[in-house]
Design a protein around this nucleic acid. Structure first.
Lengths: 364, 364
DNA sequence: CGATGTCATGTCACCGATGTCATAGCCAAG
DNA sequence: CTTGGCTATGACATCGGTGACATGACATCG
């Protein structure tokens, strides 16, 4: 591959002048510049970042580590989608800033992370982002203090800057909206209890009720997702059965995520309960493939993973450009990203009170 | 950041000896090695890839370009998932080979590709992979012949090495399996006609029928996806309505993808037609969030994007290690990747012939 | 016992850019 | 006519490693 010296020779100037043409950091005579440009084009010259980096000590690189790492359990949903959306968001923001991204994934093995970080450091990345697959607590190996690190969709015990979904607010917004629409008996089918999102969203659910002066009825809240269990559909079926038999049954089922809502649709359908005429259903994630395609389309909360990615990237870029130690302490707090409620026809505006109940009787 | 000279000074040897410890490419005395290792640890030394690259002329990098680029139309499904799975596969294979991946996405703008390639060339990537979002024909700017390029999920007019899903075979396998299960009237609801996958899968559908000696009935094949049209659910409804009213209606609906199958479930449900008792449904993609979560779970064809990614990476690695021009011409042919049929309970083994028909009458 | 080979290590140039400093030409101000 | 300032350019060192080659100390072999 042609070097700057080849270009210099061909255009009969010094290498330094070619460098000046490349970087435009000093005046270059018009004719000289043109001659150099011709020579570069003719040779197909592409400057070497490696050489440039050696002098300038700036790599223009950021490293991204992703992977399905969980601290508590190893058994997760085998999806791994959210992190990919986050990656897209990060990529977008990084590209806009002129940074090039190096990406590596752990393939689920936490023990590989140190090695990946090492690889990135060899390339002298100017910053690192770690992306988790779902909102969780992580524990990463220390990275040199000179290399800024941002956590996306996760946080750690030592206060590393993080960007997180605002689960509490999302669920609260949704439930508030349901209450506005006239719903009073709102069931909440949660994701596994050990998940951070579950805790936060349940709090959001409770907050919305409290704000509206409605009672929190424990009978309406149940964990409906025991990941990996064979009989998960059966569990969900039983919970729905129990809810529908309540003396004062819910008029809407809030599901832990859109995927659960999809399953709920199937169960309700096989019981002959019509959505939304007889009971409303809401999800979480705005997982469009499901939410928009389901019939009727699903009311849900947007969990904009892309936005989390963008914010994480911006946060990292700020840390890179700033004098490092100059981070005010409020900047250490996690940044919460929230998305809007998407109101679709799976929820009625004026709930049909007890029709679901009647239906239940007919079914039996 | 500490350099090799710092390590050399601290451990009282020459820089070259430190280099030998690092690379293990020449014998180093036991004590010397240990002293060097101690010094490296003490200084937190991380070798600079840039410097190494300058001498060795090997970057250990591969570039990956991804993005929602379509040649024919700009209006696509806003999903962008497949390419991300492919990226995961590539990443996995690359990591296994010791390569580091740089990734860039086009954000949908084809005109950015040259710039991205330029960036990669500056980093002296040893190879490039271009990943498309769905099976399509693309037209990329020329890259220097010295940098191998592989296309994943797409192909071009000039025979660039490619890795593609075997759509024809996948659909043929599925339909053959349906025929084995006793189905004779198999409807096929295709994706948009301009898509490469549609042409190939329709051919696969026809091939399976031909192989079994069954007639190809044009009345059973229809395009059910006019992307972006407002009334797409209506179109699908009308098609299903027409199919169910046929004198000899289908016993199974093969959908262009799992997402369409999800929509079909909704329509059938609202018509009171039971799946699979009254009619069977099959999808394509094995999009697990849908296929496994739907009730009943969906029979579909696995379109292993991850495998496409792995194969593309392997192909690129082969091109990198080989003497380049030594590619036999059969290696120029696209590599087709096929996945298995996932047989789930949305399809009956012995179809209930005309019950769907009766149902239709009742509904009216 | 000298020739040869292997081990362990060092010296030095070089990879391809850029930063620093020098220099030559030109023009305007003093 | 100097002098200072600006433009346009080049010489050279340097970034942090590695390749080529050299060297000294031993061990082995015929």
């Amino acid at each position: 591959m042609a070097t700057i010296y080849d270009v210099a020779r061909l255009s009969k100037v010094s290498a330094k002048t070619v460098s000046r043409v490349l970087n435009g950091d000093a005046p270059v005579g018009r004719e000289t510049r043109e001659a150099v440009e011709v020579a570069m084009a003719q040779l197909g010259y592409v400057p070497s970042n490696a050489a440039r980096m050696m002098r300038s000590q700036k790599s223009g690189l950021v490293g991204l580590i992703t992977g399905a790492i969980s601290l508590p359990s190893e058994a997760l949903q085998p999806q791994g989608l959210p992190d990919l959306f986050i990656v897209q968001g990060i990529q977008r923001a990084m590209a806009a800033s002129g940074m090039t991204m190096m990406i590596a994934d752990t393939g689920g093995r936490l023990d590989r992370v140190p090695h990946l970080i090492q690889t990135f450091l060899r390339h002298r990345v100017e910053g690192l982002i770690y992306v988790a697959e779902f909102h969780q607590k992580v524990e990463l190996p220390r990275v040199p203090a000179t290399t800024p690190l941002v956590l996306a969709n996760c946080f750690d015990a030592i206060g590393t800057p993080a960007v997180l979904p605002d689960d509490a607010r999302g669920q609260r917004d949704l439930v508030s909206r349901l209450i506005e629409a006239g719903h009073r008996r709102i069931a909440y089918l949660t994701l596994p209890l050990h998940m951070v999102a579950t805790t936060l969203r349940t709090a959001g659910y409770a907050a919305a009720l409290a704000q509206a002066g409605l009672p929190y009825d424990p009978a309406l809240v149940d964990c409906a997702d025991y990941e990996g269990r064979e009989d998960e559909t059966q569990i969900l079926w039983d919970i729905i059965d129990r809810l529908l038999r309540l003396p004062d049954p819910p008029t809407v089922l809030c599901c832990g995520n859109d995927k659960m809502a999809l399953r709920v649709y199937g169960i309700l359908r096989s019981r002959g309960v019509k959505v939304p005429d007889e009971i409303s259903v809401a999800g979480y994630d705005n997982y469009r493939v499901i939410a928009e395609t389901l019939f009727p389309p699903l009311t849900t909360v947007d969990l904009s993973y892309t936005a989390i990615g963008v914010r994480a990237a911006q946060r990292l870029l700020a840390m890179i450009s700033e004098p490092a130690a100059a981070q005010p302490q409020e900047d250490r707090a996690p940044l919460l990203v929230s998305g809007p409620v998407y109101w679709r026809s799976s929820v009625t505006e004026r709930p049909a009170s007890k029709i679901a109940n009647l239906k239940l009787v007919r079914e039996d």
